[in-house]
Computed example of a mutant assay.
Amino acid sequence: MLIAQITDLHVKIPGKLAYGRVDTARFMADCIESLLALKAIPDVILATGDLVDFGDPEEYRHLRTFLDRLPMPIYLVPGNHDGRDTLRAAFPDHGYLPESGFLQWVVDDYPVRLIGLDTLVPGESRGELCAERLAWLEATLSASDRPTLIAMHHPPFETGIGHMDRIGLTGADAFAGLLARFPHVCRVVCGHLHRPITTLIGRAVVSTCSSPAHQVTLDLNPDAESCFTLEPPGFELHRWTGGGFLSHRAAIGAFPGPFPFFDPSGVLID
């Protein structure tokens, strides 16, 4: 099974730029082209939050013009820039989304069980796993011991990027306790950081993902200012091997190559 993860799309209405500088819709179009150009087509897409910039219905309509080009199932979780009700209304054909309440879901249709968690706190940049959301997760994990991947927006660990850690996840310790109790959770994939970062919590590899648009500046000074760069955009490919996941970062865009290492006779090209 091959899973593509995209995150922090921040799609705006046509003609608008994020922070007056970033054409997130153009970057999203490039992301779709790169996904469609993959030689190994993903079985599913996980979009781990901040799908649009302000949670507006028109933004979600614009987002759908891109996502509807993809031939595989797409599973969505909200980020702090999303709106629960407007997201739900924009994707009425996504039957895995609950009709009310938190946008949390479980899909059992694949070799790996997929769980989506809702860490959104309306009006705030931080995320939260409250008692109700954690209880739902505990019950869901208790219902099956199949290998499981959890998708969520806010990462459940400190990254060392101070301004982002200050808008991190409330409830991370309780979440880590659940991972310790349920070792069949083998992978947790997150967004929010606009960077690829990987750590281990219990037996689960936990990671964040590049954005297809702007990236958070890599600055491990705890007092660093909140800022972004236009480093090369990307997404993640997570392949289930039967015993675990192997992940690749994929760059978005068109680049020279591929070029052969050897000539047709098998001689190394100098």
Rank of each mutant, 00 (worst) to 15 (best):
I201W: 02
F175Y: 06
F54T: 15
E236L: 15
A174Y: 00
L9G: 09
S210D: 13
V107H: 04
N221S: 13
D50I: 11
L97R: 01
V106D: 12
D68M: 03
T86S: 14
E99R: 08
V121I: 10
T48N: 15
A224F: 11
C130Y: 02
L17V: 10
T229V: 12
L134R: 04
L200I: 14
Q215F: 15
E132S: 10
G162E: 09
R61L: 07
W105T: 00
V77D: 00
R126Y: 13
A180L: 09
I74K: 08
P212S: 08
N80S: 14
D43E: 15
F255P: 01
H94W: 12
P78H: 04
L141P: 00
H163K: 08
G244F: 06
S144N: 05
E158F: 11
R181W: 02
L141V: 00
I252Q: 07
H94P: 04
S144G: 03
E231C: 13
I115Q: 00
A131F: 02
R239V: 15
L169E: 00
N80W: 10
S100P: 08
I3Q: 06
D56S: 13
A139D: 14
F262T: 11
R146C: 05
R88I: 07
P73F: 07
S125G: 14
H184G: 00
G234P: 02
A90T: 04
V52N: 02
G242W: 12
C209L: 08
G79P: 09
F91V: 04
G243A: 10
H163D: 14
L38P: 07
V121E: 14
E99L: 09
G123V: 09
A90V: 03
T24E: 02
D109M: 04
L246M: 12
G257I: 01
